[in-house]
Simulated scan of single mutants.
Amino acid sequence: MPEQERVIITQAVYVASAVEREQYPEVKMPEIVFIGRSNVGKSSLINSLTRVKNLARVSSQPGKTQTINFYALGAKGEGTADRKSFYLVDLPGYGYAKTGKERRKMWSAFIEDYLLHSPQLQFVCQLIDIRHAPMRSDIEMFSWLVRNGIPVLVIATKADKLGKNACAKQVALIRQMLGVAELSVLPYSSVKNEGRSDLLDVIWDTLLQ
Rank of each mutant, 00 (worst) to 15 (best):
M1I: 06
M1R: 07
R6L: 08
R6H: 13
I8W: 04
I9H: 00
Q11M: 02
Q11W: 00
V15C: 03
A18F: 11
A18K: 01
A18P: 04
R21N: 03
R21K: 11
R21I: 08
Q23K: 07
E26K: 09
E26D: 01
V27H: 00
E31M: 01
I32S: 02
I32Q: 01
V33H: 01
V33Q: 04
V33N: 01
S38D: 08
S38V: 07
N39P: 09
G41H: 00
K42N: 05
S44I: 09
S44E: 05
S44Y: 06
T50D: 10
V58S: 12
V58T: 15
S60D: 12
S60Q: 15
S60I: 08
K64R: 15
T65Q: 15
T67D: 15
I68Q: 11
I68H: 13
N69I: 14
N69Y: 14
F70Q: 12
Y71A: 14
L73P: 10
K76M: 13
T80N: 11
F86W: 06
D90M: 10
G93M: 05
K98C: 00
K98H: 14
T99V: 15
E102M: 04
K105T: 12
K105V: 08
A109D: 05
F110T: 08
F110A: 02
E112S: 14
L115T: 04
H117C: 01
S118W: 06
S118I: 06
S118H: 09
V124S: 05
V124R: 10
V124P: 07
I128W: 11
H132T: 12
H132F: 15
W144A: 10
W144H: 03
L145C: 07
V146N: 07
P151V: 04
L153P: 01
L153Y: 08
V154G: 04
T157V: 02
A159Q: 09
K161T: 11
A166M: 02
K169E: 12
A172N: 09
L173D: 06
R175P: 01
E182F: 03
S184T: 12
S184H: 11
L186F: 09
P187F: 13
Y188E: 06
Y188M: 07
S189M: 07
S190G: 14
N193L: 13
G195P: 12
R196K: 15
R196W: 10
S197A: 14
S197G: 02
L200W: 13
I203F: 10
I203D: 06
I203H: 10
W204T: 14
D205P: 04
L207H: 06
L208A: 14
L208R: 15
Q209E: 15
